[in-house]
């Protein structure tokens, strides 16, 4: 504040003309600063535009070689063979199966944890558990990949000796655990946003905690809980390293989680690890795959954003 005080004094003592010019220069300085800050805010917009531009421009070239219809319906994915096939279904099956396994873990556990933390746990327990869950979601996914490949798979093989070393099941299970904190924290936020007077209304009728939670709080937070699920799905679909490490990178059209299969993301990793010439069709496939991924997560993110906005407006 001392700087401001001095400059104000300067103004008071200087003649009128210089005071005016002083104000003008100050005005210009303020304008410049505002423009610089605005440009910084625009960087995020340019990032999105950059993503869209890169994905679309490379995909356009790709689709001039590969008809969209083949891309969507072909049942083989062999982009690097002489007899190249580009059926995205193959990669999509890996993505959907692994995401399905992950959600079978993350949705029930995440929901129970959210209800438990929001309606059952005391403030002290909540204060301890929430940061721990936050830490859990901060673990690098490559480490989860290691864990899935070298701990969970051998563990599962004890019960299922025929389980291959690479499989969608253990990758999906570990991915599910990884997503739990995302699901539980958004769902819990939604439940805690339910006004206390609704809960009191239910307790005043003689309802127990569980009855209040299931019959009043969960329905009232419904759209927020759905948003939590959808953002969980979006994370599962976009997850890369756990799958690249533990589910193998072999394209395989399958709906069986006990098999190895490449996902969209694992395929991109596999191509990037190799040495593909810039501009080849093989190089462009990863952009077409990336565009597919981007469109899928975009739909989920918009849906999730809209649902969250809805519950925020409600209360």
């Amino acid at each position: 504040m001392s700087g401001t005080a001095v400059s104000t004094l300067d103004q008071a003592m200087s003649p009128a003309e210089s005071r005016l010019s002083h104000r003008a220069s100050r005005h210009i300085k303020e304008k410049i600063i505002e423009s610089v800050l605005f440009l910084a805010a625009l960087v995020s917009v340019f990032t999105t535009l950059g993503i869209v531009y890169i994905l679309v421009s490379e995909s356009v070239v790709f689709f001039s070689h590969v008809p969209l219809w083949d891309f969507l319906t072909d049942k083989q994915w062999t982009p690097l063979f002489d007899d190249a096939h580009f059926g995205i279904m193959v990669l999509l099956s890996g993505t959907l199966v692994s995401s399905g396994v992950a959600l079978l873990v993350a949705i029930p556990l995440g929901t129970v944890i959210a209800v438990f933390l929001s309606e059952f746990a005391g403030p002290r327990l909540r204060e301890i558990v929430k940061p721990m869950l936050e830490l859990l979601s901060g673990v690098p996914t490559i480490v989860y990949g290691y864990f899935a490949l070298l701990f969970v798979t051998p563990l599962l093989q004890r019960f299922m000796p025929e389980l291959p070393g690479f499989n969608l099941l253990s990758a999906g299970l570990v991915m599910g655990i990884m997503i739990i904190p995302t699901v539980s924290s958004i769902a819990e936020d939604a439940m805690r946003a339910v006004p206390m007077n609704l809960r009191e209304g239910s307790y005043a009728m003689g309802a127990t905690r569980l009855q209040t939670a299931l019959k009043v709080v969960v329905p009232a937070a419904f759209s927020g809980i759905m948003a939590a699920y959808i953002l969980g799905i979006s994370r599962a679909v976009g997850e890369t390293m756990i799958l690249a490490v533990a589910a193998g990178m072999q394209p395989n059209l399958t709906w069986n989680p006990l098999e190895p299969a490449a996902t969209i993301t694992a395929f991109i990793v596999q191509v990037a690890l190799g040495d593909l010439p810039h501009g080849s069709v093989g190089y462009q496939t990863i952009f077409a795959a990336g565009l597919t991924l981007m469109l899928m997560t975009l739909v989920f993110n918009i849906l999730g954003y809209w649902l969250r906005k809805k519950y925020r407006e409600q209360y």
């Binding site: 994905l55 679909v237 976009g238 952009f287 991924l293 997560t297």
Partner: peptide, 16 residues
């Protein structure tokens, strides 16, 4: 929306 874009897509952006 950017916060929800999978990290590998950023990799594609960087590559291109």
């Amino acid at each position: 929306n950017l916060a929800g874009v999978p990290s590998i897509v950023y990799g594609l952006l960087a590559l291109g």
